[in-house]
Design a protein around this nucleic acid. Structure first.
Lengths: 356, 356
DNA sequence: ACCCAGGATGAAACCCGTTTCACAAACAAA
DNA sequence: TTTGTTTGTGAAACGGGTTTCATCCTGGGT
């Protein structure tokens, strides 16, 4: 059966569609009895206005595109849930756009992310979304002037784009980001305060600005404490539990090993925890570990992870609020910094000389 | 600047919009040079067809609504990622609809889920989605004839609706679901085979059909082995790590305690693991634990969880494929059962008499 | 030379709302 | 009573595509 339209209602109520539209949107006064007659008919027929038609003429859709790299990475659901909370309050719905590729074996492939990201960018624009938020992915990687960055900037000319946690350098795009450098400094300073001197870092991708920022924070804290960074204790290219286990095994298997490891995210930290366990190294007594992100899983492990909270939900909420303002044409600050916070739990302890 | 439309292209190419539309969709032959001229103009102006307008006349949007209860529960991102994979291949985009409510303190509230679910149902229909998939939430709870169930069925008359893992009894709606009873049986049988006789179950919600099914599987396996179920060892109402810890503490703190715990999901199992650890009970030597769902986090814990895999990604993939068929008007089986699989890892071991 | 099947194309209707404009009626102020 | 402002309403244009129908051409078959 054909869905009922304003025309059907109008005909049956002996009014014009204009009037029906008016009661639908309360956009102009309608005589009380006329209104009631129309409302009754709407209920009777379970009238649901066609949002496509409405959006087409209104030139606004109430739809947002949310581009993220990998929904199975628990960090993203966290920010997404914060975003969802505000977005819904503001009356938006959103498309979820995951830029990761998986092959038939469910292995995650990060190589085609760029391609996917720009595909989504134009797809979303065709769908006439009111705004786009991008977290992770290319915005973390692109260098100024690069083709990739240009595409995003191009899109931003046609529709509000908000970057989360990204770090597209030298861009005029609005962003909300945690201070990555500070977060790393917090973590490393904590280890130093506990008396650690042999500190390693694992994870991240050397090309990602986020990683670079955190590495910078790490180096800064080390330098200020007069400690030097051994380059074989800086292991990058990876963000998974798997990788964390791998990196930590390598670190802990060597003759000289660090007494503390700073991990670029919690997944890596969990991997490090596993590696230590396999090698019979007790955490935190013999090895301190600090994670990053404070995903819910950080409290699932035994011992629970000491980590740097990026306030993921808060970022998501801010994102929704800010994008809404941008859509409304209001001015918003170019960069909103979210202060990271160190959450001390159970994987860090004062340094003690190995008894053996 | 106003976006460029088919009319703009048509005017500049000295053709009618019909012709432009034809080259856009390859829907009828167009003279080669005309086509080339039009294509060139499209590129020149970076023409992007307005998907709203297109959908409005085509009466299909390529949009799907995906309703789930809580994206921060890692089970859902898993099925979502499987769904994403296929949906994208088939050319769909989807709205993510999270039915959980959170208050300002980010606490999750499940009480208003119903309301949210029906709001989303009509919202999605207004947005003219081509189909809707619902996982968890009301479809797990509703009894036949109930108001809630009716709403879903009502929606299903207007747009294809697919239920995942739900168990709306006596409904004619299409569903894809893992065999919950079998999954539980597998888990419990495994424990019994290992020599356990004192087995407890924790988690779930008594009103959820899923929980009921699993409980049924549990009881069946116990009965077949001639074991009886102690009712103080059946603890329901909860699905979180927190709850798991609580339940397990209660169980393990009692004078008489089980030698094995079957958990209604992996989060609970992780909680149980933590409780055991706090109480100094070694897993799996002194206590075996089996989870359910096989979320990625099941391998993050130490020891790694033995669990029942629901093949979450697979369910998601099937969902996309099936919904696509439904949208195309093809017949699909009323119920597709996904076989659960027991994944034996490190939290289960043969029963041994307590040495003390 | 004649007929017919495509090929190529345009005019116009259609999808379903919103919004502008015009106009009549009702009511208030002067 | 006259003028000015609301209230109440409809006709029609609009948003940006798709699709049907009609028309004109062209090449192949006989």
């Amino acid at each position: 059966m054909r869905p009922v339209t304003v025309y059907d209602i109008a005909r049956e109520a002996n009014v014009s569609v204009a009037t029906v539209s008016r009661v639908l949107n309360n956009t102009a006064p309608v005589k009380k009895e006329t209104r009631e007659r129309i409302v009754a008919l709407m209920h009777k027929h379970q009238f649901q206005p066609n949002a496509l038609a409405r959006s087409l003429s209104r030139k606004e859709t109430g739809m947002i595109g949310f581009i993220l790299p990998d929904i199975t990475n628990p960090f993203f659901p966290e920010v997404l849930s914060g975003f969802d909370y505000e977005a819904r309050k503001l009356g938006y719905t959103y498309f979820l756009c995951d830029t990761i590729s998986t092959n038939e074996e469910n292995e995650r492939l990060y190589d085609r992310q760029y391609e996917r990201e720009s595909q989504y960018l134009s797809l979303l624009m065709e769908k006439q979304v009111d705004g786009i938020v991008i977290i992770g992915g290319r915005v973390d990687l692109a260098k100024p002037g690069e083709e990739l960055a240009r595409e995003v900037e191009e899109a931003a000319k046609r529709v509000p784009v908000l970057l989360l946690n990204g770090n597209l350098p030298q861009t005029h795009l609005n962003r909300i980001a945690a201070d990555q450098k500070l977060g790393a400094q917090l973590a490393v300073q904590h280890l130093i305060d506990l008396g650690h001197r042999d500190i390693a870092v694992i994870g991240g991708y050397a090309k990602m600005t986020n990683t670079q920022q955190r590495l910078l924070g790490f180096r800064t804290a080390m330098k200020e404490a007069g400690l030097n960074v051994r380059k074989e204790w800086v292991l990058t290219e990876g963000f998974s539990v798997q990788k964390g286990q791998e990196f930590a095994s390598r670190l802990l298997g060597a003759k000289r090993r660090p007494s503390a490891i700073f991990c670029m995210n919690d997944l890596l930290a969990i991997g490090a925890l596993k590696a230590a366990h396999r090698l019979g190294i007790r955490v935190p007594e013999q090895l301190s570990i600090v994670g990053y992100d404070d995903i819910p899983q950080a409290t699932y492990s035994i011992p629970e992870l000491t980590t740097v909270s990026l306030q993921s939900q808060e970022i998501g909420r801010q994102a929704a609020k800010t994008l809404d303002k941008m859509i409304a044409g209001k001015k918003v600050p170019r960069l909103q910094s979210i202060m990271p916070e160190l959450i001390v739990r159970e994987t860090t302890a004062p340094f003690t000389e190995p008894s053996a």
